[in-house]
């Protein structure tokens, strides 16, 4: 099943965040709770973890992109 990895809302005021670094690449197998990427907003660097086990299929945002909350950053093939 395909699932979307989106820009999380890390504070009530947050509108967007800079996707600073991918910690996993296309084709990588990831486990729930493993760090996927880092986001910076309002002087906070936040490590964002995978919510499911799966394979990171496609990265849709580049490092340095300022992305609105909820924007799709990557596609994952979830594994049961």
């Amino acid at each position: 099943m395909k699932i979307e990895v989106t820009m999380p809302k890390m504070s009530p005021e947050m509108r967007s965040g800079v996707l600073c670094a991918w910690l996993k690449g296309e084709g990588d197998r990831v486990r729930k709770g493993e760090a996927l990427f880092e986001v910076e907003t309002e002087k906070v660097v936040c490590q964002v973890e995978a919510e499911r086990d799966g394979v990171l299929v496609r990265l849709l945002a580049e490092e340095g992109d300022d992305m609105p909350v909820g924007a799709v950053l990557a596609e994952m093939e979830a594994q049961p």
Binding site: M10, A35, K43, V44, V45, C46, Q47
Partner: peptide
């Protein structure tokens, strides 16, 4: 000034 990191 201040700055932050969130992990785990």
């Amino acid at each position: 000034g201040s700055a932050r990191r969130v992990a785990n």
